[in-house]
């Protein structure tokens, strides 16, 4: 039972330091909104990983545990990615074996599968009780979530042109499909008639609600919360797509692209 975990604070500080150091070393300044996004991302990370939220998670509040996960998966990684300028990521991710690995990992399908299977697995009661809480230090799962969250958002927010983002309709599809594994995890948790996780059933509850009610609340946060969140995100993407395709797709010049002029020959 601790209010602030030193390791988390140190980790966040290290990230901020790296960001600053990279900026100084490469002698370039990130745009103001990028700095702001990165800073906000780190702040959200701190908020999620330590302090009152984590305190109550340790004190067996399932709903806050889910809320913490949602922050780590849906809020922090996009902010960090938005805050990352391309010149800062390039030295890390272009060239060498690391690029090859990272390219495979961030293929949309791979990233999607890694994220959704991880997310599904850590909510499997057997695994959750034995791995998430009992045997390993709890922090491991949180960092894993942050990492797979980063993978998840990479195809949408990749800072590097070398790693092209998905096209807008694909981004929408990607997020839409994401709702399905999320729902598949959230629905059984919400609808379950018994408390699924021994860890949360075993202790006194910080807010005095029954473990069952706590579980339903957690399930609803995951189900409805992520649904509304993703819906807002892909609505925004849709409107970006609309603006892009309406205004920015260049007029195709006939004379420059004679190949497009070929009249379709339906047969023979």
């Amino acid at each position: 039972m601790h209010e602030f975990s030193i390791s988390v604070i140190l980790g966040v500080a290290a990230l901020a330091g790296l960001y600053l150091a990279a900026s100084l070393l490469l002698d370039r300044r990130p745009a103001r909104r990028q700095t702001a996004a990165f800073g906000l991302g780190l702040a959200m990370m701190t908020f999620a990983l330590t302090g009152p939220i984590d305190h109550y998670v340790q004190a067996r509040s399932f709903a806050l545990y889910i809320f913490q996960q949602m922050l780590l998966v849906f809020i922090v990684p996009p902010l960090l990615l938005i805050g990352m300028p391309d010149w800062m990521a390039r030295p890390l991710l272009v060239g060498g074996w690391f690029e090859r690995a990272w390219r495979i990992l961030t293929r949309p399908l791979v990233a999607f599968l890694i994220f959704s299977s991880t997310f599904t697995l850590i909510h499997y009661p057997l695994l959750c009780d034995h791995v998430c809480h009992a045997r390993l230090p709890y922090g491991d799962i949180r960092e894993l979530l942050l990492l797979v969250g980063l993978l998840l958002w990479w195809p949408l927010l990749s800072p590097l042109p070398e790693y092209p983002r998905l096209s807008y309709p694909m981004q929408i599809m990607y997020l839409f499909l994401l709702m399905i594994p999320m729902t598949a995890v959230a629905a059984p948790i919400t609808m379950a008639q018994t408390v699924l996780y021994m860890f949360y059933a075993s202790g006194p509850h910080p807010f005095g609600i029954t473990p069952q009610a706590d579980q339903v609340l957690g399930g609803l946060i995951m189900w409805i919360g992520q649904g509304i969140y993703l819906m807002c995100v892909f609505t925004a993407i849709f409107f970006r797509w609309s603006r892009f395709e309406d205004r920015e797709v260049p007029a195709i010049n006939l004379r420059l692209q004679p190949g497009l002029r070929v009249i379709r020959r339906p047969a023979a």
Binding site: L156, P164, R165, S167, M170, I237, V249
Partner: peptide, 12 residues
Amino acid sequence: MSDHALNPAHAG
């Protein structure tokens, strides 16, 4: 976000 999102017309 629109920096290099692909136009589907060229995606294939």
